[in-house]
């Protein structure tokens, strides 16, 4: 109980305007414990980023809303928090870093000032000198020379920029860091560096991380637990072993792993999963994956799968709950 940092229960998020409604997140449960790294994996459009925004309270105000469910951070109810409350949390108790480091930093402000801004916002008791010292320390923490804090973002490479972003995110030692595809825009060697650094920091600071990615390789390197999202639902959740080495899997997970090009085999063509993710405005009945599932049955089309749990490994698929029948 105590070391549960984040608890998401039955979260539904939708985007609504005059013309249509997008059901982005459709009832997910997720827990993150202190010091844990949870990978949130799925294709583009699965609802991963929306989940992250919901946690941060950064859903676009007029359009996005949490229609059902709750998010609890520690003992704070985020679903019903005011904007003012959220401001105190962002950058302080929870931080988020984004995908493209090239555009994540304000080009007109020095990196030192940008990192310092987080401290200005949340560590008001620090005076200028203390802040500067902390900024220096943070830069060194991420492997950058402190003297460079007077330089501007354009004077740094992509990888360095992402480190600065990470420094900003960790400035106030948050309990939870949400990293939305932090290395996708970086080339592979830099990616490795940044991931190394992140795991090192995690060890040092004990920060819990939700790592959003579509790259299973990254997941393998860094995560303790993995949640697989599809069409706004977490269809499989488990430890790293469960997902990578386990025997039971959701057919989608099988498809994901199957699409990874193999280093050993010599194949002509890659093996994608047929079809596309369903239109979030117009979700199918029953199991949302049934249209693309090679093992779908009539039941999959009409009934929503029940939760199957085995020692913390959760799968939502009719293949694993043959005993129960449930109408839509």
């Amino acid at each position: 109980m105590d070391d549960r940092i984040l608890s998401i229960k039955n979260l539904h998020v939708k985007y609504e305007n005059d013309e249509m409604t997008v059901y982005a997140v459709n009832g997910i449960d997720l827990e993150v414990r202190r010091g844990e790294t949870v990978g949130l994996v799925g294709e583009t459009g699965a609802g991963k980023t929306t989940t992250a925004f919901a946690v941060m309270g950064l859903l676009p105000k007029k359009i996005g809303s949490i229609s059902e469910g709750e998010i609890i951070l520690g003992d704070i109810d985020i679903t019903h928090a005011t904007e003012a409350d959220m401001r105190l949390l962002r950058g302080n108790k929870i931080s988020m870093i984004f995908q493209d480091p090239m555009t994540s930093l304000n080009p007109l402000i020095t990196v030192g000032d940008q990192i310092g801004e987080v401290l200005e916002l949340h560590r008001k008791e620090m005076d200028k000198e203390e802040r500067e010292k902390r900024v220096d320390a943070l830069l060194e923490l991420v492997g950058l020379p402190a003297e460079r804090k007077t330089e501007y973002p354009h004077q740094f490479s992509g990888g360095m920029k992402q480190r600065i972003v990470i420094a900003m995110a960790l400035a106030c030692e948050p309990e939870l860091l949400i990293a939305d595809e932090p290395t996708t825009a970086l080339d592979v060697t830099i990616q490795a560096q940044v991931l190394d650094m992140m795991t090192g920091l995690k060890a040092k600071l004990g920060t819990a991380i939700i790592l959003i990615t579509h790259d299973l390789g990254v997941v393998a390197e860094t995560c303790d637990k993995v949640a697989i999202m599809y069409a706004g639902e977490i269809i499989e959740f488990g430890s790293l072993e469960d997902i990578f080495a386990g025997e039971k899997h959701h057919p989608y997970t099988v498809g994901l792993f199957g699409s990874i090009p193999s280093m050993e085999e010599n194949v002509q063509r890659l093996k994608p999963i047929n079809g596309l993710m369903p239109d979030p405005c117009n979700l199918p009945s029953g199991c949302k994956f049934h249209a693309r599932c090679p093992r779908a049955t009539e039941k999959c089309r009409t009934c929503i799968p029940e939760k199957f749990e085995e020692q913390g490994h959760i799968i939502y698929c009719h293949l694993f709950n043959e005993n129960t029948e449930k109408e839509v």
């Binding site: 941060m56 950064l58 959220m86 401001r87 105190l88 949390l89 962002r90 950058g91 302080n92 931080s95 988020m96 870093i97 984004f98 493209d100 555009t103 994540s104 930093l105 304000n106 080009p107 402000i109 801004e117 987080v118 916002l121 949340h122 972003v165 900003m168």
Partner: peptide
């Protein structure tokens, strides 16, 4: 994107706009 970053840091709308 960097405006989004600023919000993610916990800045208020006023601060984001002005700064």
């Amino acid at each position: 994107d960097y405006i989004r970053t600023a919000y993610a840091k916990g800045a208020s709308e006023k601060r984001v706009v002005m700064k």
